[in-house]
Write a protein that binds this DNA or RNA. Structure first.
Length: 431
RNA sequence: GGCGCCGUGGCCGAGAGGUUAGGCAGAGGCCUGCAAAGCCUCGUACAGCGGUUCGAAUCCGCUCGGCGCCUCCA
């Protein structure tokens, strides 16, 4: 299997099964319900994990929850910890709606502070970081490869990395330097002890610490949205490599969701929460929607596109109505051809349609289940009273009493079911 | 301004030097008491302009347009 790697800007072959494949995906910063854009890397990572496991790989996936961050302090002055705890629960609850299972580890920054402090100490010992005024900064000048991941190597202007708070700028040796540890400030209601005084971790260091804690000093895949390439992942890489880890061997960066032509982002306020989207469209439609575009490309979120995904869900559902399972060899090869080539889910979706049209039902069911769409293959059983009505309708039709038959059809429809006449009787399908 | 990504038929969206992508919508037909579902048929698309080539949507150059990152962001 090969995947596109941001670092080398090309396709990279994965080791053969059983691997292991250790994956780290960047999860959200938790201070409100996540939006569907946040769901894309989650969905991608879970699908990839399921596919790799299906192919005999030993997979370990860690996906962090960042629960220490300026945004959280701002969103809930005086009770940031409660908000972070609550929003972490929302995150798990909302992503559970997708029915794809959970990553193997979902560490939180607040549970990783000792490891973070150790890592910072190591970087200071190696001359790659320095304390200043209660903060600790990474010394970019001491890490020659800085900028390679994001392609900003050797570009002085682009490498300027001004501090998020201007008042910290004078503490830095170099404007490119970034905070590993931030001294406690007035108004921040959570604080941890450290050799450099009370404070809290900077934004990037927690991922370096968590990845090492749960995956080790080297792992195969690091993923996340492509808006994280710089500075977040560039900084993670510098921290971890600087501390002597090999860190990620390849990087997967998914494209952004677009809403009215702009990236969907909390800071832009053009948000649709994952929860709302699932409630409005149903999980199958949301998953098919994600399948419809290659993971690296941007994807629009619009009613029209969702309606198309919904229609596809309906098409698959119809295929299984009244269908008896038939023994048949599952065509794993066909799916492997497209998924092993940079995890091409739109091609996989096209294959599903092909299987449907050719009656490869067992393959189709297997493929749908792999993507968490197994429910599309389950025909719902109608309640007995509706079956009785449908039975009455069949009798009416047999005696050519079509007025009565049509009346019964409306009655059944009023209860949310549709009758379809087939060769040997009828089918009842939820509307 | 710098670093990247991308422009495919009404819409979504793969593909990638010569061969039908697929789906959604639409039109016609088959089936049906009527429907629904299903099936069949119908689109000759690849931003523009040059170039390379026997041949380009696919390679190269330029132009135009869109998007992301460079500041918290999946």
């Amino acid at each position: 299997m090969r995947l596109f790697d941001t670092y080398t800007r090309g396709l990279v072959e994965l080791p053969s099964p059983p691997g292991p494949i250790r994956m780290y995906f960047c999860g959200p910063t938790v201070y409100q319900r996540i939006h569907i854009g946040n769901a894309r890397p989650f969905v991608l990572s879970m699908w990839l994990k399921r596919w790799l496991e299906q192919n005999g790989y030993e997979v370990r996936l860690a996906e962090n929850i960042t629960d220490i961050n300026d945004k959280i302090y701002t969103a809930a002055p005086g009770h940031s910890a409660e908000l972070a705890t609550q929003a972490s629960r929302w995150y798990v609850e909302d992503t559970d709606l997708l029915g794809l299972g959970r990553p193997d580890h979902e560490p939180k920054a607040t549970e990783t502070v000792p490891e973070i402090v150790d890592l910072i100490g190591k970087l200071i010992d190696r001359g790659l970081a320095y304390p200043a005024g209660g903060d600790v900064y990474f010394r970019v000048a001491a890490f020659p490869d800085y900028g390679r991941l994001s392609g900003r190597l050797g570009d002085d202007e682009a490498l300027r990395n001004p501090s998020e708070e201007p008042e910290r700028a004078e503490l830095k040796e170099d404007p490119r330097d970034f905070a590993l540890w931030k001294a406690h400030k007035e108004g921040e209601d959570t604080v941890w002890e450290s050799p450099w005084g009370p404070g809290r971790p900077g934004w990037h260091i927690e991922c370096s610490a968590m990845a090492e804690k749960f995956l080790g000093q080297v792992f195969e895949i690091h993923g996340g949205g492509n808006d994280l390439i710089f500075p977040h992942h560039e900084n993670e890489l510098a921290q971890s490599r600087g501390a002597g880890s090999e860190f990620a061997r390849m990087w997967m960066h998914n494209g952004m969701l677009q809403l009215t032509g702009e990236k969907m982002a909390k800071s832009l306020g053009n948000i649709v929460s994952l929860r709302e989207a699932v409630q409005e469209w149903g999980r199958e439609t949301i998953l098919l929607y994600f399948m419809s575009a290659h993971w690296r490309k941007p994807i629009d979120f619009s009613d029209e596109v969702l309606a198309q995904a919904s229609a596809q869900a309906e098409t698959f559902r119809n295929h299984f109505v009244g269908l008896e399972a038939e023994p048949e060899e599952i065509d794993r090869q066909a799916l492997a051809r497209v998924l092993d080539d940079d995890f091409n889910t739109p091609e996989a979706l096209a294959l599903f349609h092909d299987w449907r049209a050719r009656g490869r039902t067992a393959s189709l069911r297997w493929g749908l289940e792999l993507f968490g769409l197994g429910e599309l293959a389950e025909a719902a059983a109608a309640p007995a009273d509706l079956v009785a009505l449908a039975e009455k309708r069949r009798e009416a039709r047999a005696s050519r009493d079509f007025d009565e038959a049509d009346r019964l059809r409306v009655e059944i429809e009023d209860q949310g079911w549709e009758v379809r006449d087939v060769a040997d009787g009828f089918e009842l399908v939820p509307k």
